[in-house]
């Protein structure tokens, strides 16, 4: 399925080919592009981390913090069902706890109506259904001009807009 990426300020790229997800225990091809499971990455990190076209994909139950300091350039978090919200916490942990600055992809069952929650949690690339309407996706991204919470996207929460002096002192 194609992948779209988030551009600043908030637009989307045209769809590009996505990287395949390698199954658990599958043979790791000598070159990418490929996304390997967390266990594969942790076992072969010393060699895999130098491959620019090789990243990691996380299943919903994976511990994102296990990636530690040696981070790949691309991480994909797989939503087996869009109602399984573990990926949002995994994403925030990656961005805010581990300081991951690479590309964070939401793959699997990804709906346009999740777009805003995904970007706020730190995702910047999304797998979309073949032929899906990017206009809707972009509209969803731009839907909310106000946020009540600080999250991984660094959008300024309302409380900071209400009390600018407090916020600048805290920064």
């Amino acid at each position: 399925m194609p992948l779209v990426k988030l551009n600043t300020p908030g637009g989307l790229t045209a769809p590009v080919a996505d990287w395949p997800l390698l199954a658990e225990d599958a043979y790791v091809p000598p070159t990418g592009p490929v996304l390997v499971p967390l266990a594969t990455w942790l076992a072969g990190r010393d060699t895999l981390k130098d491959r620019p076209d090789t990243g990691v994909w996380l299943a919903a139950g994976d511990d994102a913090t296990a990636l530690g300091d040696d981070l790949p350039a691309v991480v994909a978090i797989r939503f087996a069902a869009f109602t399984d919200g573990r990926g949002y916490s995994q994403a925030r942990l990656l961005r805010e706890r581990l300081g991951f600055t690479g590309e964070l992809r939401a793959v699997g069952d990804v709906l346009v109506d999740q777009a805003r929650f995904l970007t706020r949690s730190g995702f910047d690339a999304f797998q979309v259904a073949e032929g899906s309407d990017l206009v809707h996706f972009e509209a969803a991204l731009g839907r909310f001009s106000v946020v009540y919470q600080a999250a991984a996207d660094r959008a300024t929460p309302v409380v900071a807009l209400r009390h600018p002096s407090y916020w600048s002192a805290a920064e």
Partner: peptide, 13 residues
């Protein structure tokens, strides 16, 4: 109420 409203991380608990 405000913190929980459209909380991006906790909408699919």
């Amino acid at each position: 109420r405000q913190w929980s409203t459209l909380h991006p991380e906790f909408t699919f608990l």
